[in-house]
């Protein structure tokens, strides 16, 4: 029996919803950029089963410190990188009420799976529309810890094609809405995915308040003979998450952000809120 298993990496996908507020359908102007140093974390002692029920699990955590950057190669072509340069996955120790050890805790630290994207702006008028190709590089640890149960990557190279659109509303762009539709082709026998998001933001003084919905629907097209190393945890993941976020513009070119992501209507993912905080810089 294959003993290499992995913890769900679905929660990492929350990051994509949490970090992208500089994106939408708008490109970065040539030689301009948006860069963010962020911290992401989730601790969960509940789990969404394949049927969507919530069950108790031994507490597990995932933490990531990442760099996110968007840079305008031209006025229409923007390069995007998400690089979790420190990722940590943990599993709690188990003790009985008298302090006797039942199960050792463990952790793994490594680089995390990295996304690189090229986004091309098709329309930049009252509505901005872009298409993007995102490559998910499996440079994280796909079977960490003494048991091989912990991971900081899913071990597969995925490619996502997406269409993003955004529109500014109100005077001086005080409000905006944006959305995304994407198809994620996963390798190594994993099911492909349909992804979507809808986001709205409002500007008050130096503050942005943002509310984002992000969803993943599995196409459940992995082959019948597919025996995922990570069993229940990484294939056919589905969820809809809602992520409120606030951004404080300390100066014109930098600020801080804090947000949280809450999944519901989910399957095969950790059932706990995810939190993120970061500092961004515009050039």
């Amino acid at each position: 029996m294959n003993t290499v298993y992995k913890i769900s990496f679905a929660f990492i996908l929350f990051i994509m919803g949490l970090q992208a507020h500089a994106g939408g359908g708008w490109p970065q102007p040539k030689n301009s950029g948006y860069f963010k140093l962020g911290q992401y974390g989730i601790i969960a002692d509940n789990y969404f089963t394949p049927a969507g029920d919530i069950v108790d699990i031994t507490t597990t955590g995932y933490y990531s410190t990442y760099l996110y950057g968007e840079y305008g190669l031209t006025d229409r072509l923007t390069a995007v990188v998400y690089f979790p340069f420190f990722s940590r996955s943990t599993l709690n120790q188990l003790e009985d009420s008298e302090g006797n050890l039942i199960q050792e805790g463990e952790s793994v630290n490594s680089l995390g799976d990295t996304d690189i994207s090229l986004k091309y702006n098709l329309i930049n008028k009252s509505v901005a529309v872009s298409v993007a190709l995102t490559l998910g590089l499996p440079i994280g640890n796909a079977s960490g810890g003494t048991s091989g149960l912990l991971q900081t990557g899913d071990g597969e190279f995925n490619q996502m094609l997406s269409v993003e659109a955004g529109k500014s509303l109100g005077s001086e762009g005080k409000y905006y809405v944006s959305g995304m539709l994407g198809f994620n082709n996963r390798t190594e026998g994993f099911s492909d995915e349909f992804r979507y998001s809808l986001e709205g933001g409002a500007h008050f003084g130096k503050w942005w308040s943002i509310l984002r919905m992000y969803g993943i629907k599995s196409l459940k097209n992995s082959s019948e003979s597919f025996q995922p190393n990570n069993g229940i945890f990484s294939n056919d993941i589905e969820y809809v998450s809602v992520s409120p976020e606030v951004v404080y513009e300390a100066k014109e070119n930098w600020g801080v952000s804090m947000g949280a992501g809450f999944a519901f209507n989910a399957k095969r993912v950790l059932a706990a809120p995810a939190f993120t905080a970061g500092i961004y810089l515009k050039i």
Partner: peptide, 19 residues
């Protein structure tokens, strides 16, 4: 702040199994 938040948040904890 981010650094120490990471340290505190990412420690391996202990789950107590109720009798």
């Amino acid at each position: 702040f981010l650094f120490f938040a990471l340290l505190l948040y990412s420690c391996i904890g202990t789950d107590i199994v109720e009798d």
